[in-house]
Every structure is written in structure tokens, then in C-alpha cells.
Computed example of a mutant assay.
Amino acid sequence: MIRSMTSFARGGRTEDGIELVWELRSVNHRYLEIQPRLPEDFRQLDAAVREAVARRLGRGKVECGLRYRADGANIAAISLNEPMLDQLLGAMEAIRNRESLLREPDIMAVLAWPGVTVARAADLTPVQAQAMALLETVLDDLVATREREGARLAALIESRCELLQAQVDKARQRMPVVIEAVRERLRNRLAEVAENLDEQRLEQEMALLAQRLDVDEEMDRLSTHLQEVRDVLKRDEPVGRRLDFLMQELNREANTLGSKSADSESTAISVEMKVLIEQMREQVQNIE
């Protein structure tokens, strides 16, 4: 199934005072580029996040942002370093006795002294597991969105293929008329400068001219490339690069047709082809 590389998904959960929210954004990119944006307590999940995304996506620049919030019951517990506190209070008491100070010590200043308080880090292993499980759910949403957008892109490209094939058929049908018109113009011009025309030599020259103007090969290749585009759109794998290559080949044949055009209508057909190919190419840039 065709997938777009442009998508957004958001999902969160709140339980036991803990809130986790993932925001995933993806845009088109030549390769798969994953950019985790994790809180400090979740930095160790960086590799796991990259692996989880790489299992689900083939191309695109993907930003993975996690927001984490915990209430007071889940923050790190603070305890006193009793030996350090005794030493500090003892030193303060000695200073008071020596200097005859009456002011009581500032409790907050005492707590701010390095080493007096010890923060016991909360065990975030269960929360990290919840975050990874939530990531898989949000990835499901991201992939589904990319697939829906991809289906719309595939339908658009299919419609452009039909229009382009119509132009190919139009050019093929018109080519005999173009060659005959060129033949007649050449005959008339030669008749103006020569009374006795060598019909055999004229036919030889016309055969060479018709060969130079012939675009059957270009038409055949355009039709072949268009059928390949249709077939590629049905594949259940990343096909963006393949489609991009086919757009280049289609444009090459359309340019060749334009260079061989012998009248304004043929030129207009070539221009319309290139417009349709460019429209497809712009959409292909967003396909995984």
C-alpha cells in the first residue's frame, strides 16, 4: 500500500498521577531520519525509540517527542544525610558560642548546604515500559494516517496517468497527419524553385524527414513507463524512489517528443505532457 511521508500523530495516557504524551511528526526525506526528543529521565530509550520507528517506517524525517509529567507522589524522595547534618549543626553551634551569636540558623540555608539532603531517584523502569507501549500505539496512528494520505496520492497519480496516456494516444494519432503536412509543405516550396522535380529523390528526402520526425519509439516508451507506474502503485512496499525514477524517464521522453514536434499542436501536446508529469513528480516527492 502506498504511504505518504507527511503525517502527524499524537497520543497520551494519564495513570496514577503520571502523564505521558507522544507527538510524532514526519515529513518527506530521501532516507529514514529519526529524531527522538526525550526528557532527561528517558534518554536511555533513544535507541529503543529509533528501533521501534525503523521497524514501521521506510523513509521520511520523523520527530518523536515525549512529554512526561508526574505529581508529587512520583517525584524523587528526599532524605537527610544525618552525619553531614550533625557536623554542620555542630560547626554552627561552635561559631555561635565563640562569637556570642543569638540568631538561630536559617533552616533553608542548612538544607541548601551541599550533601545535607539526598534525593533517592524514583524507579522509572515501569514508566519507561509504558512509554514504549504507548509509542507503538501512536505509531499505529501515524502509519494509518500515512496510508490514508498515500491512497489519495495514488488516486491522484492514477488520474494523471490516464490523462497522460490520452496525450500519448493523441500524439500517435496525429503523427501521420503531421508527416503528410510536412511533405506537402516541402513539395510546394520545391515547386516554387524548380520546374521539374525528381519525384524519386523527393520521396527519398521525405522518407529521411519522416524518420527524423517519427516518435513511435517515444510513444511506446511513454506507454510502457505509464504502465510501470500503475504496477508500482500496487506494490506493498516503499516505492517512492522507483516512482521518482519513472518520473525522470517520462520527462525525458516528453522532452524528446517536444524536440521532434513539427507543428504547434504537437508542441502543445508535449507541453501538456510535461505539465502532467510535473504534477505527478511533486506528489511522488511525498511518497515513502
Rank of each mutant, 00 (worst) to 15 (best):
I2P: 14
G12M: 03
G17N: 06
W22R: 04
E33K: 14
P36R: 03
A47M: 08
A48C: 10
R59N: 11
R59Q: 13
G60E: 01
K61G: 02
C64L: 00
R67F: 12
I75M: 09
A77E: 07
N81E: 09
E82R: 15
P83S: 13
V110H: 00
L111H: 10
P114L: 07
A119Y: 07
D123M: 09
P126F: 00
Q128C: 08
A131P: 00
E136K: 08
V138T: 04
V138E: 10
T145M: 13
R146C: 08
R146M: 10
G150A: 00
A154P: 06
A154D: 00
R160L: 07
C161P: 04
L164Y: 02
A166L: 03
A171F: 06
M175G: 02
V178A: 11
R183G: 01
L186A: 07
R187S: 10
N188P: 00
L190T: 06
L197V: 06
R201I: 02
E203K: 09
E205W: 02
E205F: 01
D214A: 11
D216G: 12
E218G: 00
D220W: 00
L222V: 00
T224K: 03
R230S: 12
L233G: 12
L233Q: 11
K234V: 12
D236Q: 13
F245P: 03
F245I: 09
F245C: 12
A254G: 06
S261C: 08
S261M: 08
S270E: 04
S270I: 07
V271E: 05
M273C: 08
L276P: 00
E282G: 09
